[in-house]
Design a protein around this nucleic acid. Structure first.
Lengths: 338, 338
DNA sequence: CACGTCGGTGGGATCGATCCCACCACGACT
DNA sequence: AGTCGTGGTGGGATCGATCCCACCGACGTG
């Protein structure tokens, strides 16, 4: 009852009474084939349930029709951080119209990094999408060295040489801090992401600029650096409370960290927003469910995903496309925490 | 400044002064090659930075070294539902020791389904993992028809013919309801997932059995069917409150739905847990951040992921492996909502 | 000394597609 | 009538690996 080998282009040719090349022409929509031959081939394809082997095709066309989405997190944040799921969803929609497959590569340690570089060297993918890039991440340059089309979600610095799409972190952070100022807050602290990531620096810079523009020179002791994790956010809040017990607002660079902040504030008897106002970033699902619901800066993560997917597809289709950079807007969503 | 074509096995052979076959032998660790030849080949490989083309290899070995994880959700729940991220993470760890690549396929509509079947027919993957299967999902049978190794997370019914791993939904639900009984709750309702999914039915059945075993015949009007979404959970709660205003506990078949339930209860002025106790299922991240924190049944989602990945790898490595079924334990995590 | 045996080796065929090129029939043009 | 172009066609080479098999030299043996 073995199904036998799947039919090949040769089987189809025999069945249709034509040569292999003609079948290939039909498959690739060449105009140089008679109506009669075309009909015969199409009938044979349908009868045999033939689908051309993508591997064999890839060998000669040098295309795999698949791209990799690389998620590099030593402490895997996929799952803890809704951001990544949203990117995946966005990339998937950006790819939907094409035949391109999406490979997810989680890079958590050295061995997974080796697997990735080997996969790339073995030409298993036509291009790579990178998210959550750190300043001296070796990966982007490595990929460029391979001559593989690469597009980033986010960027390493303002001078990012690779194509990328990112959201207006600076503007979003400024809007958040201005909102806190409007509510009459006096001592506004911030909890940042890692400063070796441009998101981290940009959101911090937004906090600084908003305060400066309001005529209030930012105060160094009101800054705590954390790592985008819930526990990191909690610890940063402990630190801030010790350094500046009189603070009455905190702009937190991610919702997940803000969730940790809220837990810590409740534990230490502070009321939100009466004693301390809190604003997060991302407007992820948890923002609606924290206690109290969290004011947050929404960024169009899914749209970033679909954008970078399309940019990468274009770069693959027409190599040598000039580098492009897309900036997407953010928006403040006010809830009860501020 | 074109990098030129990447080196092939032929280039390496020339460089090492041996034949192509010898290089191939070294690559595949054949013992029938002299120390001297082996050293020469390895040196040449290192110098040229050669990595064998996985596409060319795949053509003859009939292996792509990649598997697909299919996430079929018309209303894409990836992102809203942390379950999927956890599965992805688990699958990735299950694959980590191998060279196998992971493709994510989101199936949201007919066209994406067609893409999937075409990818499968074109032999782009060695096997498929399916999550969130519905009772009359055509996909599992379709894949089996292709003769492609397939493993499920969860199952369609107790008589699932395909290999799968799933968690003890029945036991978990019973534990949840028993916990509510222990706390002295009298009228315990339940909000179920879709009943065309075995998870939905099993958790409902657990609720029934626990009540029956406690000598309290379950009451039909205490059941509301929902769809695993937050909004669905909220609506189901509205329904329950209308049907049975005197209920004092509700077992909700997922945390995301429970989050919606909590919002609705607060909106209608009910106190949790004083007036109504709530227990969720999944013990996902949101459970710790709802107001109040949610008692929930933990299921080892990540472990399910790594398990099905390994099962699939074995099935690919040795075709004809007998179908296997792995049951993983659940555990009740008590918080303030009950 | 001839004859197998056996570790080591490389050439040719193969996998299933695309692409180059030669070829064929037909109508048009000189 | 002979040449030319041109739509349509198929055979052979190619992509880069693996695998089958023939081959070769150096042993050991009767």
């Amino acid at each position: 009852m073995g199904t036998g080998r799947p039919p090949t282009i040769k089987t189809v040719a025999a069945r249709a009474g034509v040569g292999r090349t003609t079948v290939s022409r039909v498959l690739n929509g060449s105009p140089l084939v008679s109506e009669k031959a075309k009909a015969a081939v199409e009938a044979a394809i349908a009868e045999l349930n033939f689908v051309p082997s993508s591997v064999a095709r890839g060998l000669v066309t040098r295309r795999t029709n698949s791209i990799a989405l690389v998620i590099p997190e030593s402490e895997s944040r996929l799952g803890a951080e809704p951001y990544f799921s949203a990117v995946i969803r966005g990339v998937s929609t950006g790819l939907a119209a094409t035949q391109t497959q999406l490979q997810i590569v989680l890079v958590r340690d050295k061995s997974e990094l080796d697997h990735l570089t080997e996969a790339v060297a073995a030409r298993r993918v036509d291009g790579v999408l990178l998210v959550s890039v750190h300043r001296d991440d070796p990966l982007p340059d490595l990929l460029e060295g391979f001559g593989l089309p690469t597009v980033l979600a986010g960027r390493r610095s303002a001078a990012e040489p690779l194509s990328h799409a990112h959201s207006d972190n600076l503007g979003g952070a400024k809007a958040a801090v201005r909102h806190l100022l409007d509510r009459g807050r006096e001592r506004i602290a911030t909890i940042t992401g890692p400063l070796d990531m441009e998101v981290g620096r940009a959101r911090l810079q937004g906090w600084r600029e908003a305060l400066t523009e309001a005529g209030r020179p930012p105060d160094g002791e009101l800054v705590a650096v954390a790592d985008f994790t819930e526990e990191g956010g909690r610890r940063a809040m402990v630190e801030l409370l010790a350094q500046a017990p009189d603070l009455d607002a905190v702009f937190v660079a991610s919702d997940v960290m803000a969730a940790g902040v809220l837990l810590e504030l409740r534990a230490s008897g502070k009321r939100v927003p009466e004693d301390i106002a809190v604003v997060g970033f991302d407007d992820s699902m948890i923002a609606r469910h924290t206690n109290p619901p969290l004011t947050s800066v929404r960024q169009p993560v899914e749209q970033i995903g679909s954008t970078i997917a399309q940019m990468l597809l274009e770069e693959i289709a027409t190599p040598g496309t000039p580098r492009r950079c897309v900036l997407l807007p953010t928006e403040l969503v006010v809830r009860e925490s501020s």
